[in-house]
Design a binder for these strands. Structure first.
Lengths: 238, 238
DNA sequence: CAGTGGTCTAGACCACACA
DNA sequence: GTGTGGTCTAGACCACTGC
């Protein structure tokens, strides 16, 4: 099989190596599941340092294209668990990125002891107190997202005195509270009466829903359920 | 501010550097938006090579935590466009990962000229021919996913002679056809009558839907719409 | 045990972007 | 211009793991 001559312009980049490798995977020089040459061999062939090949292969492994094991060598991943990366921006940024103007409104605010379902969801104790906020996010005054947020007061004591009238809890938390772990999930749910009224939907309409929980070490920080307006799509290219 | 003494056990790893950096971001040593020391300085401080610090900071930038610019230096990302990575496995793998047994069935197969909406969606020409497949994926004989797939025959001529009775187009394509670009999006849609019957839903129920389009260079390869059964959630931790 | 990838180093040059 | 990150190199040692 013939490959294009290396560009004589200077050194080989790890990006060049990635491209070459991808080419050979595409043209089946290295079929799925097949083992490929080791780093040293490839480095010789490409005329670069092993570190360069290493970075190329490491990134490809990171992207799910290759499967690397010490001693066993590197293989082309047979069942390509391709992974997509989604950016999770702040609502404000997401809205403004579309060119629309962003508006925020606090709908409801209350302090209560944690409800059972949340207690289980976040590993809270039954007596823990939480700040419950409901907010609306608008794009050009059209309902964009309904946010149902719960904050663990024990983890974020300052939240009780915070004024969420103008700044959303989303942005406030990002600025004020660090977290170490997060879980996010997407699903399709049914619009409740309350949600429907806020989002200008009919009851029963499908709603794209995101749920996000965050922890600081092992301490639960916050849980939020974001319900998006009609027609929302989460998209990414890779 | 005091930091734990470096573990005297051998060299400093880029992972150690990452941890240290994250710690200092969390404790506000470097606040959001603030500029942080350069690579050389940090390398001195941590007692390691610049390359080590570089790798640490590069990965953090890659994860959206830091923002790096030549000459301008490195800053803590103020609006953390945290990104989540979702694995997009084959349906088979996804089902089997839950411990359930996987079953596939071809529902419908036809060759036709590309419908208008798809023509626009994939940049096809109005006269192009496509293979249209509809399939079901079951988990323990419970409907798991309904797959509506369109393959560009010009791009994948062999698909016309392929037998999709036992092997799903999903797996077949992954094995046979390389692609360079893909777009994937998720949304909440309404169950049509056909979908509802296949997925054991009621008409009008919300359906979690994934759409995926792939290209080889600039040539459209395939478009698929996957409709998931009731209660499906796409989850990730980070 | 021995081969493969994983990582660190010290040094060098380059490219971009801000002043 | 000039400082900061981006990358390559050559060499070294280590750690895991299949044989």
């Amino acid at each position: 099989m013939n490959y294009p001559v290396m560009i004589p312009t200077g050194k080989i980049s790890y990006r060049d190596v990635k491209d070459h490798i991808l080419d050979r995977i595409r043209d089946r020089t290295w079929a799925a599941g097949a083992i490929m040459p080791g780093e040293v061999e490839l480095a010789q062939e490409f005329g670069c340092a092993r570190a360069t090949v290493n970075r190329a292969m490491r990134e490809l492994a990171d992207e799910g294209i290759l499967d690397r094991k010490r001693k066993a060598g590197t293989r082309v991943n047979a069942s390509p668990i391709r992974q997509a990366r989604f950016k999770i921006p702040l609502v404000r940024a997401e809205v403004e990125a579309t060119g629309a103007s962003y508006r925020y409104a606090l709908v409801n605010r209350e302090v209560l002891t944690v409800p059972e379902w949340l207690c289980a969801r976040l590993d809270l104790k039954p007596a823990d107190r939480v700040l419950h906020l409901q907010c609306m996010h608008f794009a050009d005054n059209t309902p964009f997202q309904f946010e149902d947020r719960w904050i663990n007061i024990a983890a974020v004591p300052t939240c009780e005195s915070a004024d969420f009238a103008t700044l959303g809890p989303n942005e406030w938390l990002v600025r004020e509270v660090p977290f170490t772990d997060a879980e996010i999930s997407f699903s399709a749910t049914v619009a409740t009466e309350r949600m429907a009224s806020f989002l200008s939907l009919s009851v029963g309409e499908p709603v794209f829903t995101a749920e996000r929980a965050t922890w600081l070490q092992t301490q639960p920080v916050t849980f939020a359920r974001m319900s998006f307006g009609r027609g929302y799509k989460l998209t990414t290219r890779f």
